[in-house]
Design a binder for these strands. Sequence first.
DNA 1: CCCGCTATTCACCGATTGGTGACAGCGGGG
DNA 2: CCCCGCTGTCACCAATCGGTGAATAGCGGG
Lengths: 219, 219
Amino acid sequence: MLNEAINLDSSPGAGGEPERRVRDRGATERAILAAAKGLLAEEGFQNFGINAVARRAGCDKQLIYRYYGGLDGLVEAIGADLGTWVRDRIPEDAGGMFLLTYGDLMERLALLLLDALRNDPLMRRILAWEVSENTEQVRRLSEARSKALALWLDRMRGSLAPPKGVDAAAVNAVVIAAIQHLVLAGSAGGQCAGLSLKTSKDWEKAATALKRLVRGVYG
Amino acid sequence: MLNEAINLDSSPGAGGEPERRVRDRGATERAILAAAKGLLAEEGFQNFGINAVARRAGCDKQLIYRYYGGLDGLVEAIGADLGTWVRDRIPEDAGGMFLLTYGDLMERLALLLLDALRNDPLMRRILAWEVSENTEQVRRLSEARSKALALWLDRMRGSLAPPKGVDAAAVNAVVIAAIQHLVLAGSAGGQCAGLSLKTSKDWEKAATALKRLVRGVYG
DNA sequence: CCCGCTATTCACCGATTGGTGACAGCGGGG
DNA sequence: CCCCGCTGTCACCAATCGGTGAATAGCGGG
């Protein structure tokens, strides 16, 4: 039989390379989720599908249907997983620290967010997905990401109140928009509006400009 | 024969709905290009392919290969077509007008770009495509769009020099990044970083914040 | 008038997609 | 002990994709 030959190859006596998988639903579920996240982070949402995930997870796609109820459920699981993003990126000494003014705070937050996004391919891919499609899938994921971001900002902001006379919510949204697009454009094309975004020197320039803009509003 | 029945349906005597197409290569080429631009603008780059374009253009995909050398050439043609974008969006009384300061100019430019992008679905889709993929196709298109934008800015800016002491190129890039992401996020999800971007009132808020940021830097 | 050139369509290819039903094999509870 | 259930695999489906070679249909010049 063909099966015999295969079993022979993967028998303990042989190289043992295939590492016969044990029956463990939990582990398989974790492997699938990890495969999905890794695939999305590395390849983007373009070729993100049942087949690709199953291939990367090394299991049959049927299991994705069984354990997650299809791609939708899997995407939802990724979204739920974004909650950990906040936990992982809040320094112990969070909150107001010794930042006195709202301007100090927002400048710091902007730079932190810039770096955080630059080092988080999964978040970037999700962000790009959000602005490219408007399916229910993406909407759910978008909501999870948005919520995680809001929570992060809340935790980091502490209880410092914004100055009066400025629509801080709108200004901050515009600043965040700038950060997100800079990271996306830089990551995808290496530049934005003629500004190169490759070397760390390039990014310093962008960061400086960003600081100037924030400082210009919040002093 | 089946053909007979079909011919009967589309014969001059009938409704004439199919509108028998005349043999005209030029017209067909234009129809294909228009179909491609329309499809990209309306459906996005996700399902943008040879088959879809041919279906929309109402001709065989073979013609796309013959006349444009495949999707790549067609995309290139779209890129070349972006040159008209500049022509169409430069007011007769372009240039410095009666804007005295660099701040006046940049504020006006920012708001104009915001509106221009909000009303240009094709440009938005291309923008979203740029930050989502990094294939040769997209790179070419991106370059064309980038060039068009730079040209537009040049024409509008006139010969007004930026103030010393600020990295105007970097600051402007960040501002443009903000505008582009606001438009993308608003168009796709109706919000950005908690700021709703649906009603014209919402957009006024965003525009005000944008103005404040520009003014904060350029005075 | 007819013939040739060219615009256009048709028919097919292999690959890949999302999705489903049937089967295999191990393991624990009766 | 055997049998049922759960985990995992395989084979197959229709649809669509990009791509190509050959056949068809109509206009224009001789």
